[in-house]
């Protein structure tokens, strides 16, 4: 199985959450049976769909703001996508817009896991807050366990 784990983020404060999960996973000893690719992306837009090619499973991790407590980890199902869709513009083509487009194009991977880490602020140049850093480690542990057991 080919598994691609993608962290989406930016260098701005808590918005680094997705990237930091990838960094944290890279430090974990993962000895599962799957071929694993780790990748960090910044606003991939519709280009996210390209990254699904050839993958049996894709795990997406992004920061999110839903009003929940910063540091909460959400596992988002397909029924959640519509609530987070944007305006389908060149500047606002978000992760869930890309997933909806991939679905219409029958380009979704056989298995897709979408995780969101609730964040508080995304100040340019700031470090992520303690709640988000803690969530990054928890989610990295959870994903490492998943990957060690085989997808």
């Amino acid at each position: 199985m080919r598994v691609r784990v993608i962290g989406i983020g930016s260098p701005s404060g808590d918005d680094q959450a997705g990237w930091r999960v990838i960094d944290a996973l890279a430090t974990r000893a993962i000895a599962g049976p799957d071929e694993i690719f780790l990748e960090k992306l910044d606003r991939p837009g519709a280009g996210l769909i390209d990254r699904f090619a050839g993958a049996d499973c894709v795990v997406l991790v992004d920061a999110m703001c839903s009003g929940a407590t910063p540091g909460d980890i959400h596992n988002l199902s397909r029924t959640d996508w519509a609530a987070y869709r944007g305006g389908l513009s060149s500047h606002g083509f978000g992760v869930f817009d890309a997933l909806a487009l991939a679905q219409a194009l029958l380009a979704l991977p056989p298995r897709l896991e979408v995780y969101g880490i609730e964040i508080a602020s995304s100040e340019p140049g700031a470090r992520p807050g303690a709640a988000v850093c803690s969530a990054v480690e928890r989610l990295a542990d959870r994903l490492a366990g998943l990957l060690n057991g085989g997808i």
Binding site: I49, D50, L88, L101, A104, L105, L106
Partner: peptide
């Protein structure tokens, strides 16, 4: 939007995404 277009013209939208990439 493009998602609705993708449902009726998937090959053309895929081609467009390939060119964009």
């Amino acid at each position: 939007n493009a998602i609705e277009l993708a449902r009726i013209a998937p090959e053309e939208v895929r081609r467009g995404l390939r060119l964009q990439a």
